[in-house]
Design a protein around this nucleic acid. Sequence first.
RNA 1: GGGCGCGUAGCUCAAACGGAUAGAGCAUCGGAUUUCUAAUCCGACGGUUGCAGGUUCGAUUCCUGCCGCGCCUACCA
Length: 666
Amino acid sequence: MYRHLEHRLAQRVLECLQRRYPGVALPGVVVEQPPKVELGDFAIPIFPFAKPLRVAPLKIAETIRAEIGAMEGIAGMQVAPPGYLNISIDRAWMAAALVADQKPPTEIPPGKILVEHSSINPNKAAHIGHLRNAILGDTFVRLLRYAGREVDIQNYIDNTGVQVADVVVGFMHIEKKSRAEIEALTRQPRFDYYCWNLYARVSQWYEADKANRQLRLQTLHAIEDASTETAAVADLISVAVLRRHLETMDRLDIEYDFLPRESEILHLHFWDAAFTKLKEAGVLTFESEGKNEGCWVMRRAGTAEPNATTEDTEDTEVDKITEEDQKVIVRSNGTVGYVGKDIAYHMWKFGLLGRDFGYRKFYRYPNNHDCWISTADGEKDHPHFGDVAENYNVIDVRQSEAQNTVKEALRDLGYGEAADHFTHFSYGMVVLTPRCAAELGYNLSEEEKTRSFIGVSGRKGFGVKADDLLDQLIVSAKKEVDSRHPQLSDPERLQIATQIAIGALRYFMLKYTKQSVIAFDFKEALSFEGETGPYAQYAVVRATSIFRKAGVDPETFGQDAASQISPADLAQAFTGEAANEIWELWLASSKTSSVIEQCIATTEPAFLAKHVFQLGQLFNAFYHRHPILSEPDERQKAFLLATVAVVRRELMRCLAVMGITVPPVM
RNA sequence: GGGCGCGUAGCUCAAACGGAUAGAGCAUCGGAUUUCUAAUCCGACGGUUGCAGGUUCGAUUCCUGCCGCGCCUACCA
């Protein structure tokens, strides 16, 4: 409702100005919140209009106030120096809408959205960096679904790359294991941990004797040919590790719909179809000399085009790209690189390739949801993937240039629409503090000791594994739950501890803005106090507890409250100086849709985490100041209970979007 | 060398589109529970927003230069 009002207000103000000053080009109306509730609920800075209108800000504000007319939901407007228009919401009106949980209809853009996230190399256990990716991606999916959008979740699997090849080398050439032995190993619990250690050993083995690297190339080559024994082993390993990744992410309530694999992009010749179109459109050029002789190259994204400004229509001569600005797409030996495959894959995503994967069911979640995987020959009946209107790739910032190159390739192919709806959801790395590195027993080199942080390295086997972190969080939470609720059964306490652990982990990964580098530290990640997931969960638990003691069901209380509390009661409750504090809580509760809209528009889930914390803070302060069950005035008591019901509902909603559930007690 | 990003309190981070007195958490110190759970609340302490200019009514935010740090810049993925 807040969001609806916000939009309507901005529109009305603009209309008012256009009516009063016709023909003048005006900047957009910005709606923000005044620094204090006493000043009002919305604030519109008028300064930007002063120049184009050639009128003093205060005077313009006064004009709007006088001429805008009545608006449903708005109680009044005030002009504030040096040039703000402050607007007060009709508190009783807004509160009644909130109690009744009214949602104004919204227009939902047509078309399906594809969110690609996780995309972990299937050669070792997932670590904290992958957790950040998956949690950001999954939360973004939940944001979109909350906004009514249809979303497909894809997890791209690079099962034929160097990283898988390295582990295959480890099994076949260092450990000299047979296919049957490897198969037996894949059935052991946490096979991905085994691979984690082996992968680190392979890297050392390469270091020890450079000649060993020959095997990497041979193996890589063999994997691409599906008929080889090596390819069979690689498939065995990558599928087993992939399954482990799905299990790990499922612990956090993260699910996928489809797992497209690089092997199918190769075997179903996606690239051939894309290559033809890229050549026809002149996106790729053949280099006949220089260091990239014999390669098909394209311009790297972000490098300037020579005559971008001068628009000569007749100049069809292909612009020479300097070697430095060239991105090799097809190598001189005829094989295609990663960016090329990615271009083909993205053409498929937008339904522009003219080819499709085969599909088969791969993994069934406990809730019976099926996750599909790509295959050469698939099942006849399968859901329709791809052909989407919008695409978001959750990939860390190091791939910005590659992502932009794919986007520009789409644009240069003439698919401007697709390029415009291609979004690289970029985020910063998770790194380790030197203290954390020391706790993990890692010996820092002299050079590393001087740094403020150390990067996670799968190659060195250096990092915090996702399952380990989650296990540690659960143990830590369980200790607290055990001491607080000894009367509960052990499985019940474990269940609660798990919910708290997930809440802490997901909140931790979401509270930082996405571009910031997270310096991982066990002390902060394992904290359950202050700005954390458990803080917000605890606020809801307290709210639930009030209803339990009052013998009222909070879920159905809304409808009852709407009939029991009259608009006059609400108006009464929000009058007077002291009422500002409770109103602030209602106001914050009304913002869910507005905050979620902002998160989507800016691809920034951290705003929601911030909002949840602020709402929790306001509620906890309210909780301390207002004893509810002992309130003698029945009408006041009903109002306070309605307040708790609304805050509880909105907090749970926001937490659900973050993938966080709330235990019955804490 | 070129490109992208970052630099805010002791530490970790906010402040979308330039706006009202730059805010939180942690840490430190001092308080609060006969009450709906103290995983909570209240208070104190803590700032030349890396440096120097510029743009303007107004700059943490935009522009230029400099300093420091990170990433990208492979016929790897």
